[in-house]
């Protein structure tokens, strides 16, 4: 087990963790805000990857896709919240709605793009590898790392230090009180849902060249996403960051040592955490 190998693996883990963070940051805030388990969140992530495929097939450049796909998904997320979830009559109804959306997106993807995984070519500029102290590392992954880290800093700043962030956190903590203070909570919900979806879409776009476009992405990422949110706490961007990085390492190392069982890792972890603390790690209500 050379240092080089360890270094490369660890870095893989960080890249994976950062992608997971982009996906789950939005989910965590949405779940803190709306108290529903959004099963369809993974579907938005998957759509990000597939829309990138479509954009590239239509002749757009990767950079254009990187810009457009999150915008599209913001619109999709915001309208989902506005038109569907807002009319939900109960938490059961919410659950059922997101579950049905999950199916719809799955079937749409299968129809339009088929069941075979599709490769997503990285842009020419980012191909090849870069020499790091412990070995050569794909430039594209370094790019993903850089972009997601920058975004993480931006998100944390927005969430923790701006008025917008405080507003969102207020609505998470006590929606009734926030309304009483004059905050338009339904607009906040819509925007946050849209932003969370956009982030997931961005993650999908970025991860395309690494993980390919695969119709099972939505279901396989589900448990990883939820374990991050449960571990990190609902409504906490910082928590999502820490938990994602941890999960990233766990996943990468388990793929290396137990390749057959790696996919079950998040499942087992999720079951174990909820078995130990049925109310989630931070005592949040479900």
């Amino acid at each position: 087990m050379s240092i080089q190998l360890l270094g490369i693996q660890a870095l893989h883990g960080v890249v994976y963790g950062m992608i997971l963070f982009l996906i789950t940051a939005g989910l965590s805030v949405v779940m803190g805000l709306m108290r529903i388990a959004n099963v369809a969140h993974g579907s938005f992530y998957m759509l990000g990857t597939y829309l990138t495929v479509a954009a590239l097939a239509a002749g757009a450049s990767f950079w254009l896709a990187l810009f457009l796909v999150p915008l599209l998904l913001f619109a999709l997320g915001a309208s989902t919240e506005r038109m569907l979830l807002r009319h939900a009559k109960s938490h059961f109804h919410d659950l059922l709605l997101t579950f049905s959306l999950f199916f719809l997106v799955n079937e749409t993807v299968l129809w339009v793009w088929g069941a075979q995984p599709l490769p997503v070519p990285a842009p020419e500029l980012l191909s090849g590898s870069f020499a790091l102290p412990f070995g050569r590392y794909p430039i594209y992954r370094l790019f993903v790392l850089a972009t997601s880290s920058a975004l993480a800093v931006l998100l944390l700043f927005l969430f923790l230090r701006t008025l917008a962030g405080v507003t969102v956190r207020a609505v998470v903590a006590d929606p009734g009180m926030a309304e009483a203070l004059g905050i338009n909570t339904s607009r906040v919900r819509m925007i946050v849902f849209g932003a969370g979806t956009a982030l997931a879409g961005l993650a999908g776009c970025l991860s395309g060249p690494i993980f390919q476009a695969d119709p099972s992405l939505a279901s396989t990422s589900l448990m990883s996403m939820f374990i991050v949110v449960v571990l990190g706490g609902f409504g906490s961007v910082t928590g999502a960051l820490v938990a994602s990085l941890v999960m990233g390492q766990v996943q990468t190392w388990s793929i290396m040592f137990l390749p057959d069982m790696a996919a079950a890792g998040p499942l087992v972890l999720f079951i174990a955490v909820l078995a130990w603390r049925p109310q989630g790690l931070l005592g949040e209500r479900a």
Partner: peptide, 25 residues
């Protein structure tokens, strides 16, 4: 035994996780 202390969304997710685990096995 795993499910009896859970309600609502957590319950649904846990049932999903357990069934997925069985699927995986």
């Amino acid at each position: 035994l795993l499910l009896m202390r859970l309600n609502g969304g957590y319950f649904a997710l846990m049932t999903m996780a357990i069934c997925q685990l069985a699927f995986f096995v």
